[in-house]
Each structure stands twice: as C-alpha cells, then as structure tokens.
Design a protein around this nucleic acid. Structure first.
Lengths: 210, 210
DNA sequence: GCAATAAATGAACGGTGTTCACAGAACGGT
DNA sequence: ACCGTTCTGTGAACACCGTTCATTTATTGC
C-alpha cells in the first residue's frame, strides 16, 4: 500500500538530486556550461530521463533561479532587522553586495541571464520572492523618511528602486567588467548609501562643514 | 602593382560586411542567436571562410563590443558638453539610459555578456574607450564638486563609479527583470541624479519627472 | 504468474563552433 | 607563356548541444 508514497518520495529525491548537481555545475562553471548531457552523466541517468522530471533545460534554470533568489532573501532579512535606519540601509547594501560577489554565477543566473528565467520571481505582487524582498528595501526607505533622512520629492518606493539598481549595478559591473572599477564593491556600496542618505544629520562617512 | 592594395581592400570589405551582418543579427535577435553558420549563409560564404577573417565567434563579438561602446560614447559626448554641472549630469544620465533602452541587445553584449568580450575596452588606462567615457563622468563630478554640489568625503572618481553603476543597474534591470520596476527608466535615472546631487542648493532642474 | 503501469533508455534529428585537407584562382618571377 | 607559390574558399568531418520518441526494462496490483 505504502509503495505509492515511496515511489513518489523516490521521484522527489531524484528531482532534488538533479537540481543539486545542476546547482553545483552552475556555481562552478556558470549557467552556460550547464548541459543536459553532462548533467545526466553526473546523476548517472540517460539524458532523456531528465525530461521525465523537468520540461526542459530552462525549467531547471527557473527552479535554480527561485532558490538562488531565496538565498539572497535569506541574507537580506537579518540586515533588515536593524532598527537604526541608516545602519539598516548600510547593512542591506553590504549583505546584497557580499552575496553577489560570493555567488557570482548564481547572481548572474538570477539577474543577468534571460528575463524568462527570473520572470516567475516577480509575478505575484504579494507572495513572490521578488516583490517580497523589494518590500524590505521599501520599508527601509520609509524608516529613513520618517527620520527625515530621505530625499524629498521622491517616494520610498522610487528610492528603493533606484537604490536596488545601484546595488545591482555595482555587483553586475564587478562581474562583467572586471577591469573597470577601481574601488572594491563594498566600498562603492557604502558610498551609494552615503549618497542616498540626505538630510540634516549627515550619514556615517559624511561630514558637513559648511 | 596596385593589385596587392586592391586585394587588401577587398579583404577589408568582406570583413566589414561580415561585421555589418553580424551586427544586424545581434540587434535583431540577440547575441545568443548569432550563429557562425547563419552568418556565413547571410554573407553567402562557407562557414569556414569566416575563420579566415576572424579567429572565432568571440572575436566577432569583441569587435561588435568595441563598436557598440563607441556608439555609446558618441551619445554621451554631446551631453557632456553642457556647462551647468547638474544639468550636465542629468543629460548624461538621460543619454545613457536612452541608449541602453533603444539598443538593448547591443547594451547586453557590451555590459552583460562574458567579461572576456568587453575586456578590451578597459585595457589601456588612457586610450581605451572604456576609461575614456568614464573620464567624461569623472569630469562631470569634478564640476559638481567645484560648485559645492557633490557629496563630501568622496572623490569625483568614486562618485562617478557609483553613478555609472546606478545607471547600469537601471538599464540592466529593465532589460532582464522586465516585470520588476514600476517607474520608467528615465524617471529612475533622474531620481538617481537628484539623489546624487548634494549641497545647499537643491537641484531644481532634476525635480522634473519625465 | 500475468497484465497493466511507470521508469528508463538508445537512437535519432537538427542544430552549434571549429578544424583541416584539399581545390581553385590569382599572383610574381622567369 | 609557363610554372611555382601564395592566398582564398570550401566540403566534410569532429565533437558537442537540446530535445523527442519508439522501445525496452522494471515495478506494481491482482
């Protein structure tokens, strides 16, 4: 009787193993080097077997996208717990950049490959991991605004978008135009924070004398 | 004997034609869809012939990278001619973003594909197109600093890096995470300008949202 | 043990970049 | 005008790739 459940479990296990091996391949050699044949070889099945568990290569990539993004979200959440608004923004920036540099191929897969792969992440306005982590940033800017430290004339949503773009720009330029930037990404991120924080109370690295 | 020169000219012409067709293909269907076989077909030569003019597919891509970047530089230069520092930054941002959205596949090729492809652009610290257009941004921030409008505690070079990253982030998120951002890229770019410009005089010119 | 169902596969199709031995044309020197 | 060299061009092949499908193999319920 319980054999149906066992089969289902085994099926899920194999699916999981495929994703695991695929993840390793992507992290080690990049998404471009993820080949169905090599993947099948690694899990010791015929290539055709993979198609019993995934529609195609892109379906595997999409799943890896979702998981990669969840890892990013998991890294962002502790930083978002910080109370002090400027410090919170600073920690968020640092967490984001650190993740991007530590997991370059994952980051590439999620944010720099085909839009189709990451499209799922930004579908549901409420539940999706994309809007969810974006909301983390928006809240940070709401706190900043409440403290009178945000740029006037721009909504927290707008500021969050620009800030995210800034972080993404820093990480992705580091990943693709390696010879371009001089300063380390973390330093650039902190400059971004300093440049984003406005208002009477100067942010950490900023001192106003006249 | 002018025949040597004629042959050389014909050779250059074919090379040019290959690049032209390749460029069209990339702009229409993206770099991933650029196939040596289809390219050979389009110029009515055998695939092997392409290898008499280019080392491999990447060599073609590199050449397209250089040209694409020069187009960007050509778009940036008029904006850089503006005298008023804030307005100059605003126009630079607008030119950059507009270029990225109008030529998405070119932009992807230059800034979001393999680092190897765009590596050439940032080799020479002096002559290369990369550093050259970066210098345009640095000068803009020097002017901003001279007017007392730049973030204190950060060098113009550093600010230029962060600003570039911000622009790149806006463009590239628009290109890959289409469902992500709500506001149009030009508006985000102007918010970035507003958020970048510091100092006693609030930058009225950047208040407008287009 | 047998029929039905699920899992796995080998072989193929059409595509990719790249190489290389070979053919043909154009050339320079005699 | 001939010949040997040098350059241009190619067809065929190699080793991959993602994907499909008829077929085989294993597992299940009866």
């Amino acid at each position: 009787m319980g054999s149906a459940e066992r089969k289902e479990r085994q099926r899920a296990e194999l699916r999981e193993q495929i994703l695991q091996v695929a993840r390793d391949m992507v992290m080690k050699e990049g998404f471009g080097a993820l080949s169905m044949r090599k993947l099948a070889d690694a899990v010791e099945y015929a290539p055709a077997t993979l198609y019993l568990h995934f529609e195609n290569r892109d379906a595997i990539a999409r799943e890896l996208c979702v998981r990669g993004f969840q890892e990013l979200l998991a890294v962002l959440e502790p930083a978002a717990a910080c109370e002090e608004p400027v410090e919170r923004l600073s920690r968020l920036a640092d967490a984001y950049v650190t993740f991007g540099l530590k997991q370059p191929e994952t980051y590439r897969l999620v944010f720099m490959e085909d839009p189709k792969l990451s499209a799922d992440l930004f579908q549901d306005k409420q539940e999706g991991a994309g809007p969810k982590s974006f909301a983390v940033l928006v809240r940070a800017f709401e706190a900043l605004k409440a403290a009178g430290l945000a740029l006037e004339g721009a909504t927290p949503v707008r500021l969050a978008e620009v800030f995210w773009a800034g972080l993404h720009g820093i990480v992705s330029l580091k990943l693709t135009c390696s010879g371009f930037q001089g300063a380390p990404a973390e330093a650039l991120a902190q400059t971004l924070v300093a440049s984003t924080v406005h208002g009477p109370k100067p942010a950490r690295a900023t001192r106003r004398t006249r």
